[in-house]
Simulated scan of single mutants.
Amino acid sequence: MESLHNSDLVRGNIDAFILRVLLDADNYGYQIIKELGIRSGGRFELKEPTLYSSLRRLEQQGLIRSYWGQETQGGRRKYYTLTPDGRERFKVKWQEWQAARAIIDVLIGDGKELASGDGQK
């Protein structure tokens, strides 16, 4: 059986996961990975190469921007913040997810979703 973090459904939403974390607050790479692990109850682990690839792509698309934070014991950290376009993209992704989830519930659910005729459980 394929684990949750390897599923195509999860892989296809990594950018949205990152945008969601940044919606709450600016953050740096390692903390984004930690936050996703916490939010998933340990069921999802984002690997560093995947994270930084996504962060580069999101920055090139103008959805996030990076800046250097203050020096800490470990040196300066590169932080990421959502741009207004990034906030809008997350909103669209959220709406797409809600619509997809409703369709998936109907298509692989137990059929009771169809009984009421409106897809509501």
Rank of each mutant, 00 (worst) to 15 (best):
Met1His: 07
Glu2Thr: 04
Glu2Gly: 01
Glu2Lys: 09
Ser3Asn: 04
Ser3Phe: 03
Leu4Cys: 03
Leu4Asn: 03
Asn6Ser: 05
Ser7Asn: 04
Ser7Glu: 07
Asp8Ile: 02
Asp8Thr: 08
Asp8His: 10
Asp8Met: 03
Arg11Leu: 11
Arg11Glu: 04
Arg11Lys: 15
Asp15Gln: 13
Ala16Pro: 05
Ala16Ile: 05
Phe17Arg: 01
Phe17Ile: 06
Phe17Lys: 01
Phe17Thr: 00
Ile18Gln: 01
Leu19Asn: 04
Leu19Gln: 06
Leu22Phe: 04
Leu23Ala: 12
Ala25Glu: 12
Ala25His: 13
Asp26Gln: 08
Asp26Asn: 11
Ile32Glu: 00
Ile33Glu: 01
Lys34Ile: 02
Lys34Ala: 10
Glu35Met: 07
Leu36Lys: 01
Gly37Val: 00
Ser40Tyr: 04
Ser40Glu: 02
Ser40Asp: 01
Gly41Leu: 08
Gly41Val: 05
Gly42His: 01
Gly42Trp: 01
Gly42Thr: 01
Arg43Ser: 08
Phe44Pro: 00
Glu48Met: 06
Pro49Val: 03
Thr50Glu: 06
Tyr52Arg: 07
Ser53Cys: 09
Ser53Asn: 14
Ser54Arg: 07
Ser54Met: 01
Arg57Ala: 13
Leu58Thr: 00
Leu58His: 02
Glu59Asn: 13
Gln60Pro: 00
Gln61Asp: 11
Gly62Thr: 04
Tyr67Asn: 12
Gly69Lys: 08
Gly69Ala: 14
Gln70Tyr: 11
Gln70Cys: 07
Glu71Cys: 13
Thr72Glu: 15
Thr72Tyr: 10
Thr72Ile: 13
Gln73Ala: 14
Gly74Tyr: 14
Gly75Val: 08
Gly75Ala: 11
Lys78Ser: 09
Lys78Gly: 08
Lys78Val: 13
Tyr80Thr: 00
Thr81Arg: 15
Leu82Val: 04
Leu82Thr: 03
Leu82Gly: 02
Leu82His: 05
Thr83Met: 06
Asp85Pro: 02
Phe90Ile: 05
Phe90Trp: 12
Lys91Arg: 15
Lys91Pro: 00
Lys91Trp: 04
Lys91His: 11
Val92Gln: 14
Val92Ile: 13
Trp94Met: 11
Trp94Ile: 06
Glu96Thr: 09
Trp97Val: 09
Trp97Phe: 15
Ala99Thr: 09
Ala100Ser: 12
Ala100Glu: 12
Arg101Gln: 12
Ala102Gln: 13
Ile103Tyr: 09
Asp105Glu: 13
Asp110Leu: 04
Asp110Cys: 05
Gly111Gln: 09
Lys112Gly: 09
Glu113Tyr: 15
Leu114Gly: 10
Ala115Arg: 15
Ala115Glu: 14
Ser116Val: 10
Ser116Leu: 15
Ser116Arg: 15
Gly117Ala: 11
Gly117Arg: 10
Asp118His: 12
Gln120Pro: 00
Lys121Met: 05
Lys121Glu: 07
